[in-house]
Design a protein around this nucleic acid. Structure first.
Lengths: 122, 122
DNA sequence: CAGTATCCCGCGTGATACTG
DNA sequence: CAGTATCACGCGGGATACTG
């Protein structure tokens, strides 16, 4: 068998597109909210630097996952929403979530606890 | 609505487990081969440093994705195979692959080309 | 052959201040 | 408010030599 065809490279592409510390939570919000203003998104994601959030959004827009809409007013208003291509990722993301919950519930619980602490919850 | 429950954290866990430059291709081989000796795996993944490959395998074993079997002979023989937990990732990985092929075929093709060049193919 | 020990480098992330 | 400019730092990944 010859593996030089790299049939897994679609997987690489998908993971690349998802690589970025805050992209999962960004997607989470956009999946649940249909449109969010930048500042609101920022406030809803504790501890991310504004610069980094903007970088991630820029990449995701370049990757076609999200749509950026700039309303020409002052002060500026910029809204982000999920694109069709982004929506299409939904099932795959859900599959990953399910896998984690079914096969790695310990790590999931760990992570949840860490985040609550980071957000000052009890 | 309150997002502090971080219902997406399963996704974070799954992506963490997959994070590592060579993990997709490692999984690819283990999904297709049922057991591989370390050196063979190494030869089949061009350009990865032995140290890095070992690190990845160690992490994947710690994450329960793969199983390491050491046969007590000289010279040493070590075989790796996918675990049940690893196998369970299959559908999710396939979903990501399909998404990439259906919605990001340009990037996929790009990546494929790059890899062929890296392997000295025409 | 499988694995470890060093040394190195670039990049992703972060803090902070500034601009239009 | 949205976005940019700097500066800094740790860590993932790579090259190479060594060990049991």
């Amino acid at each position: 068998m010859n593996y030089t065809e790299f049939k897994h490279c679609g997987l690489n592409v998908a993971l690349e597109v998802l690589s970025g510390k805050w992209k999962p939570i960004i997607l989470f919000h956009l999946f649940h909210q249909q449109e969010i203003r930048f500042t609101d998104l920022w406030r809803n994601i504790p501890k991310v630097a504004k610069k980094v959030l903007l970088e991630h959004l820029k990449q995701m827009e370049a990757d076609g996952l999200i749509v950026r809409e700039e309303r020409q007013v002052f002060p500026p208003e910029v809204y982000y929403r999920i694109s069709e291509k982004g929506k299409a990722l939904g099932p795959a993301l859900a599959a990953l979530e399910n896998w984690a919950n079914e096969h790695a519930s310990a790590q999931v619980q760990e992570l949840r606890d860490k985040k609550k602490v980071a957000n000052g919850q009890r």
